[in-house]
Design a protein around this nucleic acid. Structure first.
Lengths: 202, 202
DNA sequence: CTCTAGACCGACCGATCGGTCCAATTATAT
DNA sequence: ATATAATTGGACCGATCGGTCGGTCTAGAG
């Protein structure tokens, strides 16, 4: 089955892996295709043989990473029961995720220029996948009576906004945070949100 | 005093104003100096006469806008009393701020490459100004007994992260949110946080 | 063996990037 | 009037950008 000089799939995933690191580190615009070539040790021709454009490469990377992140979460979630434990675990999952900066790159990409509708659609799909994780968790908490029955969508936005925002704050502050400190901040935030929704009226 | 062909200060502020809009709309990397020239109706020579580099222009813009944002906040704050009212007002101030995307551009800028120490320092100063707003408000709430005495810095990170994160989420979701809807999300988030800290133990 | 098709390479392309340079212009000081 | 200095326009620079193209190499099919 393998026809070419070597296994194309291996090359492709090598490109994806290296590009993912670069985009996560430096954002979308600051990464050049030459850099990707260098990091993945492929020529430009080869790179463009596998991915038709920088946009397509970037979207592939983000979509793949998001899928992976969600799969890992499903795995984690299945091992736990109860809304409280799961919410704290979600905070940990955010805190532990090295790839999380990709969401920032995604935002930069989305605003850098006016994008065609098909790409815009793919972007909102990605966000929706992440939002769904938060929504299911909160819904489950409200159904079980653990959380008060507030406006679900407001809570989803508060939760996802909070978890993503904390990641940003931890990046800007140059203070060398250990992973444990970062996790502690996430935990504190989840704790506040949890009590906030439990105490919430209406 | 005015010596040149026209008033240099007017030109300078015209550049700052137009550059600010562009950076807020498109981020740092996606805005070219030629674009700035076009938008501000100045030539390249004139632009570089007033600002020595793209970096310096960007930092000027961000520093000026942040100062303005904080002055406006001080103004708003002085008209209100009580932690609760002020916290909701802070949420509104975030929601109303058209320039807020500049913080996103700042983050993109910070990660795009390794920056010299003096620039890094200026960046953390900017963040610290915003964080201080949150810190003072929370401190005041704890002192007055309205908020429980939790770890202050955790709360600061939760609050500032939340407020910035919600802005991002509202940008990505293409769902046409009215300004009133957006403000409602901020209000809901502040409400949750408020109750969370009031209910918090320790 | 020959043929073919996919994998791969790197020189090359036009466009654009941030930035430089200097002549031209003009308000003010002398 | 002349000199001075602030301000401006825009041609120009080398570097780099995303992307193209013609061709090479190799494994499997016939």
């Amino acid at each position: 089955m393998i026809r070419g000089r070597s296994d194309g799939e291996e090359t492709k995933s090598r490109i994806l892996h290296n590009a993912s690191s670069l985009f996560a580190q430096k954002g979308y615009g600051a990464v050049s295709m030459n850099e990707v070539c260098l990091a993945a040790k492929v020529s430009k021709g080869s790179l463009y043989h596998h991915f038709p454009s920088k946009d397509e490469l970037f979207l592939h990377v983000v979509e793949e990473d998001t899928q992976k992140w969600i799969c890992e979460w499903e795995e984690l979630k299945s091992k736990l029961s109860g809304t409280e434990a799961r919410l704290f675990a979600l905070g940990d999952h955010y805190a532990n995720d090295f790839q999380n900066p990709l969401i920032h790159a995604l935002e930069e990409y989305a605003r850098s220029r006016t994008l065609p509708d098909d790409i815009r659609q793919r972007l909102s799909q990605i966000y929706e996948l992440v939002a769904r994780v938060c929504r299911e968790l909160l819904q489950e908490g409200m159904d079980s009576g653990y959380l008060n029955n507030m406006n679900l969508e407001s809570c989803v936005i508060t939760l996802s906004g909070m978890l993503e925002g904390i990641g940003r704050v931890n990046e800007i502050t140059t203070i060398a945070n250990t992973r444990e400190e970062i996790r502690a901040y996430y935990r504190a935030a989840v704790q506040i949100l949890l009590q906030g929704i439990r105490a919430g009226e209406r």
